[in-house]
Simulated assay, not measured.
Amino acid sequence: MVGLLVAGLLATVTAAVAIGPVPLPAHRVWQIIFAQIVGGEGDWSAAQANIVLMLRLPRVLLAAMVGAGLAAVGVTMQAVVRNPMADPYILGISSGASVGAVSVLGLGWLAFAGVFAVSLGAFAGAMLALLIVYLVAHAGGTISPLRLVLAGMACSYTLSGLTSLIVLTSPDRELARQAMEWILGSLAGASWSDLGVPAAVLALGTGLLLLRARALNALMVGDETAATLGIEVTQVRRTLFLLASLLTGVMVAVSGAIGFVGLVIPHIVRMLVGTDHRRVLPVAVLGGAIFLIWVDVGARMLFAPVELPVGVITALIGGPFFVYMLATQRVRRKESLS
């Protein structure tokens, strides 16, 4: 399945770059890319080359990275808290990032960072939320799934209120629109300079998570069973918590808060390949990349020339899917009791 998904990802990238107000043939897309890599010229115009290399390809690659990262975090968090309905934002990371981003937009902080100010502020806010949740969840000396979820929820509600306070008390009436666009998530304006950090963190984070696949399998069964298998439960949960938070913080910083990717994709993947994380993680990473690329295509094409925030479409897909998950869980529970 991994091979098929890799082929599907390449086809998806090709189609997403080709689709737009100025459509391009698929072979022309790759001609321009190869010419950029190895050098040479072709019979395409400078405008076509700019469309591929400067506008669409960076955006498509960023969508793939964000989708892959959020899916990997969703898989991890569902194992860490033993809940199939957990997602990357359960730890309050998204709310922290929103506070950081809105603080930059409304209060002018980090102006020295120029165009990277919002992303830097979002990452700083995400890491602040990580620190708060970690300290609260670790107050008893261990990190239990229940304490982790409750700490994340409390942090999320508090920071969401702080975001609203900054927006409502700001004299800048444009801030509400800017904050809403960021909170709903967008990949518009992506450039090559946006790709380096997410690519490095995604490669490192998913690699480390794959090395912990056995521990993820054990945590899904339960802490006592994991301990009998030689897993240091508290230490492993702490490591996975930090990895998931770092991945989430970086992805949210470059794209805004795009919801439901980390909820929908891992659930579908487990229905297809089972619960072994040695298979679940790579399939979820590739599936998340493909999913978010197509969502972004829909965001920029469905109501063209108006572009929707990506988070609007993921919410329209993920909300009904979440209801379906709740309904099927209730049916399974009734069947198991009868």
Rank of each mutant, 00 (worst) to 15 (best):
G114F: 09
I93D: 01
S98N: 08
G121Q: 06
G205K: 04
L107Q: 04
A126C: 07
L120N: 09
L148N: 08
G152W: 02
Q178D: 15
L175M: 08
L175Q: 05
L146A: 13
L131A: 15
R212K: 15
G114R: 00
D87M: 05
G222Y: 10
V102S: 02
M153C: 12
L211D: 12
G114A: 13
L168G: 10
L165G: 05
L159E: 11
S103N: 09
R212I: 01
L187Q: 04
L150A: 06
A117E: 12
L184R: 00
A200M: 12
A117L: 09
V118A: 11
G121I: 09
V115A: 15
V149L: 12
G96V: 07
A200S: 07
T169P: 02
L202C: 09
P171T: 09
L168P: 02
P145W: 06
L110M: 10
L148E: 07
D87W: 05
M180G: 10
M220Y: 05
G140T: 11
G106A: 08
S144A: 11
S156C: 09
S98W: 03
G205R: 00
G108E: 13
M127V: 13
A179P: 07
A213L: 04
S144E: 15
D223I: 02
L120M: 14
L91R: 04
L148M: 13
V102T: 11
L208R: 01
A97P: 04
L168M: 13
S160K: 10
A101V: 03
S164C: 06
L150G: 03
L91P: 02
A139D: 11
L120H: 08
A151D: 03
A97F: 04
C155A: 15
S164Q: 15
A126H: 07
